[in-house]
Write a protein that binds this DNA or RNA. Structure first.
Lengths: 253, 253
DNA sequence: CTTGCGCTTACCGCTGCGTCAACTTCTACC
DNA sequence: GGTAGAAGTTGACGCAGCGGTAAGCGCAAG
């Protein structure tokens, strides 16, 4: 069974122009070309096209897609990867939707206390954006930590991940409250908060004193982390680092 | 409180280059520009940026976004629209994920009966793709029908929409079964199916006999509709049109 | 005084197609 | 056999949405 270019276009929903383009760049060459120059596609091509559309859906470039499809990686494993990423993307949209819902609620019932609003507004505003920044970059920069933390989060369901996310955010907000209240970082209450943070980190990795101080410094230096902290309240990254340094000196050495 | 371009970039996750671009095209002019030419953003700009990112997420072009933001439509209503579309998009990804899961299962446990596969395989292969083709084009081509049907679907939740979608697909598959069985379109069973279709259409719009026949013809002529039908089974669009014509002649006049 | 940082404008480049234009080929009907 | 129409072909140009780089300005620190 061979299909013409227009038939494939109708079935798949892409235009014939797109199919020609995919042929042109060697992404989806037709099974055969008739003596009149017409392209003929077979069932295997449809499968390949499905793969292409899938990966395109995930935001991959056509060159990447071609590379993946031409390399003989395990197709099923690749599909599993797609599957996970689709679910992750779905959850991201869920988060985004909630962000929007919150914004709607705020706009509707008139602004309440702008004090509380001031402290975590930016975080709320952009929650759910920035798809996989952390993911892609972190994987490149710290391959092994990434691996181990991936193994740890692997077993998590979407709800668990979400709960964990909220927990982290709540922790950061509590720290911000200490900071704006002027509490010194060595204060026992602050140190208790840092202890909770340390325990949280230990779910993925157990740093020594120096490593934990290094992590704190990373919060300040790495724009991604720092952005998260400063989005809650200005200067929070520095405050957190200082608190972590005290904790490391007094409790981890 | 004024933020520099880099601070806004960190908070929102877009690059400063993008922010400059948005200024350039008049999409997001900064609140003020210092004597040294530096851009300064205020909180209102952050809100606007959130809106922009939201609509960008939904696939709107920057010009459209600018038009919407500059027209003084009810912001809350617009946000509600975003919210609904986000949920719809989320559900689409869910469908896509299921498609992938099915493909994985098929690849794993060897192919089963290719008979059943033949009738709805293409549908399975591409289920969940083609995001808003119907939406964008239909809006342009039949503005008023679009409006009335929009009003009808407005009240639907995401679950209702999905149920409805499945219902329609199931109907098409039943028609396909009649067709491959060789049942004539005038057969009472087929006409009963068409009656169900007509009732369904009436939820949005009540066509007269001629209009209903016209709709059937559209199913054949319009590549978008036809693609959907032929994806279920080859020739289904024509079969459906003929059945609808008989129905219109016998029951609507 | 120069070094560096953060910012500016200006312009070229890239991806993934849409959109003609001009031409061929095949089929159908008179 | 002629001819219209549908469906295919190969260029070529265009467009959005930025990324990237170059070249330059202003200001604080060493």
């Amino acid at each position: 069974m061979a299909w013409s270019i227009a038939e494939v276009a109708r079935m798949s929903g892409v235009t014939s122009r797109t199919l020609r383009h995919y042929d042109e760049i060697g992404l989806l060459p037709p099974a055969s070309i008739g003596g009149n120059g017409h392209r003929h596609y077979e069932e295997a091509d449809l499968l390949r096209l499905q793969q292409i559309l899938l990966m395109r859906e995930l935001g991959l470039g056509l060159r990447e897609i071609r590379a993946v499809l031409n390399s003989d990686v395990d197709q099923v494993a690749a599909l599993r990867g797609h599957y996970r990423r689709l679910l992750a993307e779905r959850d991201r949209l869920q988060t985004l939707a909630r962000t929007v819902a919150r914004t709607i609620a705020e706009l509707e019932e008139g602004r309440g206390n702008s004090d509380m609003a001031r402290i975590n507004r930016p975080e709320n505003l952009f929650e759910g954006f920035e798809p996989g920044r952390h993911e892609a970059e972190a994987r490149e920069r710290w391959p092994e930590q990434w691996e181990s933390s991936r193994r740890a989060t692997e077993g998590m369901t979407a709800e668990e991940m979400e709960r964990w996310q909220r927990e982290v955010t709540a922790q950061m907000i509590r720290m911000a409250e200490f900071m704006v209240a002027g509490t010194p970082v060595a204060d026992p209450a602050v140190q208790a908060e840092v202890d909770a943070h340390y325990q949280g980190v230990c779910r993925f990795w157990t740093p020594c004193a120096a490593a934990y101080k290094g992590l704190g410094q990373t919060y300040l230096d790495d724009p991604r982390f720092r952005g998260n902290f400063d989005a809650i309240a200005e200067g929070l990254a520095g405050y957190q680092r200082d608190a972590m340094a005290v904790y490391a000196d007094t409790r981890l050495s």
